[in-house]
Design a protein around this nucleic acid. Structure first.
Lengths: 205, 205
DNA sequence: CCATTTCTGTACTGCTCGGTATGTAATTGA
DNA sequence: TCAATTACATACCGAGCAGTACAGAAATGG
């Protein structure tokens, strides 16, 4: 077999839908209904394709969900990476929580957060979905913890601050806000909570 | 029909199981697997009864779930009523959060909190379960808000404190901790978060 | 042109779901 | 003893589930 490095058109019949656009629709359905509450009929109807096309493009329901979560992290949680780039520990935390509150209450998206609404309990699949989502959230918490450790090293968080504990606290507030947002609390309500929560964050040194 | 006020034995064949004990088993299954992740087969197997007995005693799956949540609130959240009886606003909050952390990590019960794990997303039932649980959590939040308003009136929280906002903040922390507990964080980890969270709570006046 | 490859649409599979019909067992009241 | 009442156990119902077989359609390569 000879493979040339030029990008050649693929062989058979071309796909008649945009796989990323269809994935965006799947994100929204999973977000609104959770993993277990979403049927393949729901998914394919929203994606505008039929079952075999879905299986060919994404594997199965489980794989589709994982890809949906990955795309959600890339697009709907871009604010988190932005927040980590702020100059001081306090600003990182405030920016993260404020942007999180905005994301939880966007009118053009479902209320709340896919990585929590997707599935918390160990349902029929022995909790694989819940474990996957928990691991995904933990990755975010660890990234925040590393950033806050750097803030302690930089001296813009007090020496001796428990960066990992503080990161966990910030994630706890964001997750609690997600639960409240899913229950219908509006953006102002979440920001009032953040006003209080920020009082626990140490400033300068 | 003549009804005498003496307690008379019921007419037909007596029930062969303890309805409250069976309900406790149902609580545990719903808690571990969520509403949608729990089948009637799961339930009746855990309760040690068969389907018609369940339907006769509780109505249907939805009613059984509501009764399970009510029993959960009565038994597994008794600590909340105890916390509200503490003398000062700060003590109410600290007691609530500490006891909540204990309840979320009891080794003889599922990790986390039924009223969150039970169902967050609007699944197949148009979100009725999620709405019911949200209303149930909101009732707790309102009770806490009233208690904190009294604390402000009593002068053991600073005048001008937003009791409703503070109550919501406390619930946010407890819900975030519940999400973390469901993901496997242990009691010490939750208490470290509470140590930080309590710094945001105003003391005396 | 035709063989090959890949995708699409319909219709289907086996299975599990929540809920129930039916016959029988156990108790009460007369 | 016997009718009435209530609960139990088996076996079933239509519906919806995740996943797939298969035949036709649309592209490429020769």
């Amino acid at each position: 077999m000879i493979c040339v490095t030029t990008t050649t058109r693929e062989r058979g019949r071309p796909r008649s839908f945009d796989a990323d656009a269809a994935l965006d629709r799947a994100v929204e359905v999973f977000w609104r209904q959770g993993y277990e509450g979403t049927s393949l009929t729901d998914l394919t109807a929203a994606m505008g394709i039929n079952r075999p096309s879905m299986y060919a493009a994404y594997g199965n329901k489980d794989e589709l969900f994982r890809r949906a979560v990955a795309r959600y992290a890339e697009i709907d949680m871009a604010y988190a990476r932005d927040a980590l780039a702020r100059p001081t520990g306090y600003e990182v935390i405030e920016r993260f929580l404020r942007a999180n509150a905005d994301a939880l209450t966007r009118t053009d998206r479902p209320a709340g957060c896919l990585s929590i609404q997707g599935g918390l309990a160990a349902g029929s699949d022995d909790g694989h979905v819940a474990q996957f989502l928990a691991a995904s959230r933990l990755a975010g918490e660890n990234a925040l913890a590393e950033r806050l450790e750097r803030a302690v090293a930089d001296g813009d968080l007090p020496a001796g601050t428990d960066a990992a504990g503080l990161a966990r606290y910030v994630m706890v507030v964001s997750e609690g806000n997600a639960v409240h947002a899913a229950a219908g609390v509006d953006r102002a309500g979440l920001n009032a909570v953040i006003d209080i929560a920020l009082r626990a964050v140490p400033r300068q040194s």
